[in-house]
Design a protein around this nucleic acid. Structure first.
Length: 445
RNA sequence: CGGGCUAUAGCGCAGUCUGGUAGCGCGUCCGUCUGGGGGACGGAAGGUCGUAGGUUCGAAUCCUGCUAGCCCGACCA
């Protein structure tokens, strides 16, 4: 993308309403604009990030054997009256009525809807196990929205639902989700720790929250530092392998890791003192197994091998996709701006032309732009007639992980400069070598 | 939902106390000089001062209602 033709309204100063780094930087870098309290428009570059996260979530869900679908944002209240949650949910739920005076609502989640879909078309154990998910906008009418997209009222969420004949099968689904979530966050360049959690309004005995450590996190967390060393890495996972998923789940949940809601000082005290850590965390996902709570309330039964109807065992699982954009920035920024991990960056490379209008710098920039694009890298070419300082400041702010600086001084020696946004380290090399180096870096993503 | 604060140009702010018809910086547009970390100079555009009503010869300024936004707490992904 040529910056001169793009819509990327960056701000030099921070809007007064933004308190935390991610909110400030999302506004300053032109990712979002507020529409009303807790409701945001996603500008082109913000949408790019959101789409990249969605893409990773889709790939990892489908890798685990889950099926994408899409349910509506507006739901009928009838289903919620049936499950009993119409009254339980309280003012957080945005209630509306249509022209006929029917009670409707803007969905804060979709257990009722998915259960309704399930019970209409699934009647036999032979159709199980089944896990369906979607990525859809939700609305929760927070009393006090804040921190930009981290605690908005409207938010994009992946929510998934598993249906299984037995508790054992449903717990495998639970473990499978645990592992697929770990993979998902790792691909995004995030360290998310599964922590034992409270059921909350969704209910359930088995539940873990995934938290990203960040000073601005809303939850206080307590953990054994051993848990932060764990990674899935390149390990090959067979999501149908019950024992493997179980083992991985145990590996990642055995070290102590809890939020303040479930924290137990007595158990925590057993962790060796030097490994006992207290920090703050941002919740970016949660998984639940809740048994037959909804299937019983809503009559979601299947016939078992003996021909008898039994309620299915269910679980639900969520990833806060829009919130993740904020969490990623909280975990990846410095005083100059955002530092995107390669896998989610809206632009992998910023090409900075230090002397717009100079025949040689213009030509080399164009060649780099074309060659990097051919290598499958999204490039933001800063072709504005701005001075070097302005272009560097913009590049730092928007956080492309790599910058190629092209100026007459370097071109005299036949080189350009390749700079890592994260480390700040710069290397000079021929333009061809720069393309080769970056193509290699981005090839694995 | 309790407590506190704010609303003036795209962004950050002054002006309000003491009423006289709106200003600064950044950004934007034009021009010139520049050109490796937000450059300089000259010119210009842009505001029903959140909204409705009241007081007054006259209201950004004083009074009342409303709305929106922000902060702390409780709540929550």
């Amino acid at each position: 993308m040529r910056l001169s033709r793009y819509f990327m309204p960056v701000l030099k100063e921070t809007p007064a309403e933004a308190q935390i780094a991610s909110h400030r930087l999302m506004l300053r870098a032109g990712l979002i604009r507020q529409s009303s309290a807790g409701i945001y428009s996603w500008l082109p570059m913000g949408l790019k990030v959101l789409r990249r996260l969605e893409q990773i979530v889709h790939e990892e869900q489908q890798r685990a054997g889950h099926h994408p679908m899409l349910m509506p944002t507006i739901q009928s209240a009838d289903l919620w009256k049936e499950s009993g949650r119409y009254d339980d949910y309280g003012k957080e739920m945005l209630r509306i009525s249509d022209r006929h005076g029917r009670d409707m609502l803007y969905g804060p989640t979709n257990e009722e809807q998915i259960t309704d879909i399930f019970r209409r078309d699934v009647s036999s154990y032979k159709q199980l196990p089944l896990t369906l998910y979607h990525i859809q906008w939700k609305f929760r009418d927070e009393v006090r929205p804040r921190f930009g997209v981290m605690r908005g009222r409207e938010f994009l969420m992946k929510d998934g639902y598993n249906f299984d004949l037995t508790k054992e099968d449903a717990l495998h689904a639970y473990n499978r989700h645990m592992v697929s979530y770990l993979r998902t966050y790792e691909r995004m360049g995030l360290k998310a720790i599964p922590m034992r959690a409270d059921g909350g309004p969704i209910g359930g005995d088995y539940t873990h929250e995934f938290l990203v450590l960040a000073d601005t996190g809303e939850s206080e967390v307590f953990y054994d530092s051993a848990v932060t060393d764990l990674t899935l890495g390149e390990r090959d996972v067979d999501f149908d392998d019950v024992a493997q998923c179980q083992a991985l789940m145990e590996e990642f949940t055995t070290p102590y890791a809890r939020t303040d809601e479930t924290h137990d000082e007595a158990i925590f005290a057993e962790v060796p003192e030097e490994r006992r850590k207290t920090a703050r965390g941002i919740e970016v996902g949660q998984i639940f197994y809740f048994g037959t709570k909804y299937s019983e309330a809503m009559g979601a039964n299947v016939q078992g091998t003996d021909g008898k109807n039994v309620p299915v065992h269910m679980g639900s699982h969520g990833i806060g996709v829009s919130r993740l954009v904020g969490a990623l920035i909280e975990a990846n920024h410095d005083e100059n701006g955002i530092i995107w991990p390669e896998s989610v960056a809206p632009f992998g490379v910023s090409v900075v032309n230090l002397k717009q209008g100079d025949t040689d710098t213009d030509r080399v920039c164009e060649e780099l732009y074309a060659a990097l694009g051919k290598a499958g890298i999204e490039v933001l070419y800063d072709d504005r007639s701005e001075r070097a300082g302005t272009k560097f400041a913009t590049a730092d702010l928007i956080g492309s992980p790599w910058r190629i600086t092209v100026g007459p001084r370097g071109l005299k020696e036949g080189v350009v400069e390749v700079t890592s946004r994260r480390s700040g380290e710069a290397e000079t090399m021929a333009p061809d070598a720069a393309v080769g180096k970056l193509a290699e870096i981005f090839a694995g993503l």
